[in-house]
Design a protein around this nucleic acid. Structure first.
Length: 501
RNA sequence: GGUCGGGUGGCCGAGUGGCUAGGCAGAGGUCUGCAAAACCUCGUACGGCGGUUCGAAUCCGCUCCCGACCUCCA
């Protein structure tokens, strides 16, 4: 709890020592998906990043309230926030479903995928359509405070007024208000209703064909995108809270407008720390369906895609994500995934070896003990430095070399203290599973695995007998046949281990 | 065009004013019946050109290239 956790704040563009508003507690809001289609992989990366952040905060002992919304109304297709079709409404029309059926379908799919990636569920997962009264109330408050105005049944946020009174419109995304004002677009519909081009809709009067609409003091309509996050973060975390996160592409306009709305409603800045994950690229380019530069999670698992040579398991992908800092772009390539797969296995195998180890030395501590102790401290220090998972992982891999050396007798464990060894075991257990959220897929402890392992021990014994007799054809036949079945035997000093490839 | 972020060894990726992560691949070695696995050693990289400095890949300037955002996007 007394850690010196530092977090990079997009608002100040600097790393800051993290101090929660209420000691011991953290309120964290992360922008969730708009459930109009299957989650795509970039989405998953953002949520995995924040999952690790959430897990680490829990590890530090904070009582965290993690809120991640589901947006199921208000998010429009096309050019601007008026005159375009709602994403959910469009899918509903195309698939001939109720909008809520669309939302339900993709919400379930999203949850399934989050589970596959082993992310912890948020504490509250509010839906935009479940908070229409709260949003209407917020619009009214914004109007009352003089930051919103009605025009023809729609309500707009007055960005110029906000910029003048707060001086911070554009601060989060590094934009100048003059530039925003100059960004007038010819193809903008309903531009005439706005006082300034940079103003945005917080309540939109529905066209007759619009599927989702609610009564409000201004019109039969629906809330603007951005507003749901402002209303729901306020409801569950208060007008001010600790962390607001999301993908980097949400900085503008979504987050910028959120700040504005919250300020307009409460005259205060909502989140103290803004965190943004970076993009996932595919072969050096942003994923884009229209260019064919895209891959769905399922395709990644099955290998059914022209971009990859084979399938990769969810935990390999999670490990792959951990190897890059959350604020860096991550380039997904087949070669990089292969490297990640091997690295992930090596780490898991070393973990298994470590847990079985007992001390062989005399308990006299030597230099080696100090090295391991420093390593253990280092891993935590890296996570305290803005959740630096790649560096923490690098240190764990240094431990992997040591573990394998001890195991194969290349290096003596002499000089390692009992408490140091057990701290190292704890470190692996805690970081790999509790914080990084990995699972050991090979040893996915079900009954079948137990049976298989028993069977394998028998086969290994029989091969060992053959080897003792120097019956090389027999022993090699066992080894080679298993290899064809994707089971690899690994001969070591202490006998033979096996793994599934 | 505007704004921002990058260009690191074969690939992916940390980091940072001097002690020069890590993973994967490659080379050599140890071990082994052979192999695999494992371990050890090795390649001394930071787009280009200038400048600041005792010293820069790390700071500054210029330049080239790439990406993101500016419009739906995590």
């Amino acid at each position: 709890m007394d850690s010196q956790l530092k977090i990079y704040n997009s608002l100040s563009k600097d790393k800051e020592v993290f101090t929660p508003l209420i000691p011991g507690r953290v309120g964290m809001y992360v922008c969730g998906p708009t459930v109009y289609n299957n989650v795509h992989l970039g989405n998953c990366r953002t949520f995995v990043s924040f999952d690790i952040i959430y897990r680490y905060l829990l590890h530090l002992g904070y009582k965290v309230r993690y809120v991640r919304n589901i947006t199921d109304v208000g998010h429009l297709e096309g050019d601007h926030d008026t005159g375009a079709e709602d994403k959910l409404g469009k899918m509903a029309r195309l698939e001939q479903l109720e909008p809520m059926e669309v939302a339900q379908k993709y919400t379930v799919g999203f949850h399934d995928m989050m589970k596959i990636f082993n992310t912890l569920p948020p504490n509250i997962e509010p839906r935009a359509t479940g908070h229409i009264p709260e949003q209407i109330e917020m619009v009214q408050t914004i109007i009352n405070n003089g930051y919103g105005y009605e025009a023809n049944g729609s309500v707009y946020f007055d960005t110029i007024k906000f910029a003048e009174s707060s001086g911070m419109y554009g601060k989060l995304s590094g934009r100048k208000i003059e530039d925003l004002m100059a960004e007038s677009r010819d193809n903008l519909k309903k531009q005439d209703e706005k006082r300034h081009p940079s103003d945005f809709a917080i309540w939109i009067k529905a066209d007759p064909e619009h599927l989702m609409r609610w009564n409000s003091p201004w019109s039969l309509g629906f809330p603007g995108w951005h507003l749901e996050c402002s209303a729901m973060s306020t409801k569950y975390l208060g007008t001010q809270f600790d962390i607001h996160g999301g993908g980097g592409d949400l900085k503008f306009p979504h987050h910028e407008n959120e700040v504005a709305q919250n300020f307009g409603a409460c005259n205060c800045n909502p989140a103290r720390t803004w965190m943004h994950g970076n993009m996932l690229l595919l072969n050096g380019k942003k994923m884009s369906k229209s260019d064919g530069n895209s891959i769905m999670p399922e395709e990644l698992f099955t290998g059914n895609s022209a971009h990859i040579s084979k399938g990769y398991s969810p935990m390999v992908i999670r490990f792959f994500m951990l190897q890059t800092h959350y604020r860096s772009t991550l380039d997904l390539t087949d070669e990089a995934l292969q490297a990640a797969e091997k690295g992930y296995r090596r780490l898991m195998e070393a973990y298994a070896s470590l847990q079985k180890m007992t001390l062989t030395g005399d308990g006299q501590r030597s230099e080696q003990d100090g090295e391991v102790a420093a390593l253990i401290k280092g891993v935590k220090a890296e996570m305290d430095d803005d959740f630096n998972t790649p560096k923490a992982l690098a240190l764990l891999f240094e431990a992997v070399s040591k573990i394998n050396s001890w195991k194969d007798g290349h290096q003596s464990m002499a000089g390692l203290g009992e408490s140091t060894l057990s701290a190292l075991k704890d470190l692996f257990q805690t970081f790999l599973f509790d914080i990084f959220g990995l699972k050991d897929e090979a040893a996915a402890g079900d009954n079948h695995f137990k049976t298989l392992d028993g069977l394998m021990q028998l086969v290994i014994d029989m091969r060992q007998d053959a080897r003792t007799r120097k019956d090389w054809p027999a022993s090699d036949k066992i080894r080679d046949t298993l290899k064809e079945l994707s089971i690899q035997l690994k001969d070591g000093k202490e006998g033979t281990a096996w793994t599934m490839e």
